[in-house]
């Protein structure tokens, strides 16, 4: 073997050992995540005792996210209206725009974009909060006071996420459709009557329900992953920063993957 070849094979084995370590680490992580979820389910009775925490979290996750969700949804509706009217041939009736906006907003755009925005806002907040509690030993302190920190901190956040995401999406749907109507009339010159007619003709309750089901899953995945990431933080404020970034990345990826899975299974 020449001197030149050796480093190459070394890099190669190094690459595979890294890959191997990464895989092991990934599954270890996944196992720890599910053991927390399992604990949460088994001890769900305890959640009743922490109803105050659930209510608090519903306010933090829900109320505080309304402005940004409404803002984003309105613009999503407007853009969808403008773009779909731009893409249509002249011989297609304009009422189609109302139908297109309604369908795409309810089925896909509002749930997905709400989730992606909240992956940043809600997910990052939760991880930073719980991560700080971890590194300042507040979670240890809870345990030392004979509290179950999973029931006390994680369960309320996940329940609040599951309850509030669908509500946010319903508000988002309404604003997106209104925004679409406004965009259609202001930019593309489509009358509100035509828009509404298209909307009525195409509206199916299932579309809205499907969007809401997605929101439940997104609410669950974002809050649970964010809590897990916060809980396992190590190494001071640097660790909190890293974990927060991980949460945003992981939950965003999980949301789009879950979006695809749910569409494949339910549609």
């Amino acid at each position: 073997m020449t001197d030149k070849e050796q480093p190459k094979t070394l890099y190669f084995t190094h690459f595979f050992s890294l890959l191997g370590k990464g895989t092991v680490y990934f599954f270890e992580d996944l196992g720890k995540y599910f053991s927390i979820i399992w604990w949460m389910l088994v001890n769900s009775r305890n959640a009743k005792e922490y109803s105050r925490n659930i209510f608090q979290q519903m306010v933090t996750i829900g109320n505080n996210s309304i402005p940004i969700v409404l803002f984003v949804s309105t613009f999503v509706g407007m853009v969808t209206a403008v773009q779909s009217s731009y893409q249509l041939y002249d011989w297609i009736p304009r009422t189609v725009v109302g139908a297109l906006v309604t369908k795409s907003v309810l089925l896909e755009l509002t749930p997905l974009l709400t989730a992606l925005v909240l992956a940043g806002k809600v997910g990052a907040t939760i991880t930073a909060e719980l991560g700080t509690m971890r590194v300042t030993e507040q979670i240890d302190a809870l345990e030392a006071l004979a509290f179950d920190p999973i029931s006390f901190l994680i369960t309320p956040r996940v329940i609040a996420g599951i309850l509030m995401f669908p509500i946010l999406v319903v508000f988002g749907d309404l604003l997106a459709i209104l925004g679409g109507m406004f965009g259609a009339s202001a930019i593309a010159g489509i009358s509100n009557d035509a828009f509404i007619e298209g909307m009525k003709n195409s509206f199916e309750t299932w579309d809205a329900v499907f969007g809401i089901i997605k929101a439940v899953f997104f609410g669950y995945i974002i809050t649970s992953v964010a809590c897990y990431q916060g809980f396992k933080v190590q190494g001071g404020s640097e660790g909190v920063g890293k974990a927060t970034m991980n949460t945003v990345v992981i939950t965003s990826l999980a949301v789009v993957v879950m979006d695809f899975i749910l569409a494949s299974v339910l549609l």
């Binding site: 507040q138 240890d140 809870l142």
Partner: peptide, 9 residues
Amino acid sequence: FLFQGAALF
């Protein structure tokens, strides 16, 4: 248990 940084909530 008194924690190092007091660990107040």
